[in-house]
Design a protein around this nucleic acid. Structure first.
Ligand SMILES: [Mn+2]
Ligand SMILES: [Mn+2]
Ligand SMILES: [Zn+2]
Ligand SMILES: [Zn+2]
Lengths: 125, 125
DNA sequence: TTTACATTTGCAACAGTGTTGCAGTAAAGG
DNA sequence: CCTTTACTGCAACACTGTTGCAAATGTAAA
């Protein structure tokens, strides 16, 4: 997979962001550097390469964030929680929060999507 | 809130369904009984009245399902899991599955959205 | 039963998200 | 520098969900 300007800039954005970003947020922050469609396709590539993981936010919109441990550990585990602040709108990875649960017999769980909403520390005070 | 034909039929659909339904699925099953927009507005009403609860599926689409214990217990608790079968596409409430988790300090959790995906019992064999 | 009126509905129009096909562009290696 | 093929932009599309407004309808009072 080739290193293009769009890819490089999107990777930079995600690396420097402390919140998960949606394709449209990324497009805005790129100030017209590339087309909307390219953002989608680059993100798809970055996910395949293991640089980012994606999830669906409570509002149904896609969000992308860098993988924290995957690149170092070479193991992909994305069963952590995501937090959506209803005040500032920020969506953050809670890498340390992994839900414990038990499903009824015969259900085979492959992936989980665990999104919390409420007030984040920044907005709490 | 008034009892209209649309509302009655949508309630029937949801009551008799063992899977959660999206507005568009409901619209289809109503065979043109009412407008698309009406489905959205009726569902909104039913949710306010406490007959149904809604959540966002892994694919970002809204899903509605009847409340099981709420109407009898008069307590609303919707922190249960939802299961999305990747084979048949069915989305079901797992009323008994409630995730256990702990968030970092200063995070105030108001609601949770916990969606599992994998293979359902029907498709497992 | 009729009337009055707030609620509900249909329609049209819209915003937003995500996808696809295709022609043109540019990265990477030789 | 040339060739190959991945990548990009554009246009067009499908789908989900929302809103404003005029017309229809449910409900309760007259
Ligand atoms: Mn994450
Ligand atoms: Mn449910
Ligand atoms: Zn916040
Ligand atoms: Zn299934």
């Amino acid at each position: 997979m080739r290193n293009t300007i769009a890819k490089t800039e999107i990777q930079k954005l995600l690396n420097h962001s402390d919140v998960a970003l949606s394709p449209s947020e990324i497009e805005t922050q790129l100030h017209g550097l590339c087309n909307r469609v390219t953002v989608y396709r680059v993100l798809e590539r970055l996910e395949k390469e293991g640089f980012v993981h994606k999830f669906t936010n409570v509002d149904g919109v896609l969000k992308y964030a860098v993988c924290q441990d995957c690149d170092t550990n070479h193991i992909h585990h994305h069963n952590h929680a995501h937090f959506n602040c209803t005040k500032c709108g920020d969506v953050t990875c809670l890498e340390t929060v992994e839900p414990k649960f038990e499903v009824p017999v015969n259900y085979e769980v492959a992936e989980i999507n665990f999104t919390l909403s409420g007030i984040c520390p920044k907005c709490a005070k």
